[in-house]
């Protein structure tokens, strides 16, 4: 396994759209192991997406289980993930391994239904909420060439509590 270099803003490769994974082989598993080791080596990241290390394939890893008071499903490797249904929205503060020394507020859906494949190619369906759903949307954005700074909301947007349940 290896810790891979993380691309940082303003690297243009972060703006590139990633392609679906077609080959579920040992090379994919090896890459996923490296990607996860890279996530763990960083400053407490709850997720990472393949394009953050310059590999433009639709792969992301989430693990929000270390967060207190967060309902999470543990360590998830999601290949070719898609949002099937979403509900609600809330403002939360985000930062990114690819955008050091900056955090900001972003609006995300609060509940998700997802479909994806596991690292072996088997179909997976999942439901997520709250912090874990936020983390998923942050990582999914990477697969579409978007960073959280593309979605920052004005501080004044936050004057009213706009959580919709």
């Amino acid at each position: 396994m290896a810790i891979l270099p993380i691309l940082r803003l303003p690297d243009a490769r972060l703006k590139q759209v990633s392609q679906p994974v077609r080959e579920f082989d040992q090379a994919l598993l090896d890459f996923i192991a490296d990607l996860d080791q890279t996530r763990r080596a960083g400053p407490a990241a709850v997720g990472i997406a393949a394009p953050q290390v310059g590999r433009h394939q639709r792969i992301l890893i989430l693990d929000c289980s270390g967060r207190p008071k967060v309902r999470a499903q543990g360590h998830l490797v999601l290949v070719n993930p898609e949002i099937v249904h979403w509900e609600g929205f809330a403002i939360g503060r985000e930062g990114c391994l690819s955008v050091p020394d900056f955090t900001g507020n972003v609006i995300r859906a609060t509940r998700l239904q997802l479909q994806a494949q596991d690292p072996g190619g088997a179909p997976v369906t999942l439901e997520m909420e709250g912090f874990e759903a936020r983390a998923f949307q942050h990582e999914l954005d990477h697969l579409d060439g978007l960073l959280f700074i593309d979605r920052l909301v004005s501080r004044r947007t936050d004057l009213f509590s706009r959580k919709v349940t």
Partner: peptide
């Protein structure tokens, strides 16, 4: 007054 935690997400 409404108080809420800011749970910073690094991803």
């Amino acid at each position: 007054v409404a108080v809420a935690a800011v749970d910073l997400l690094i991803g």
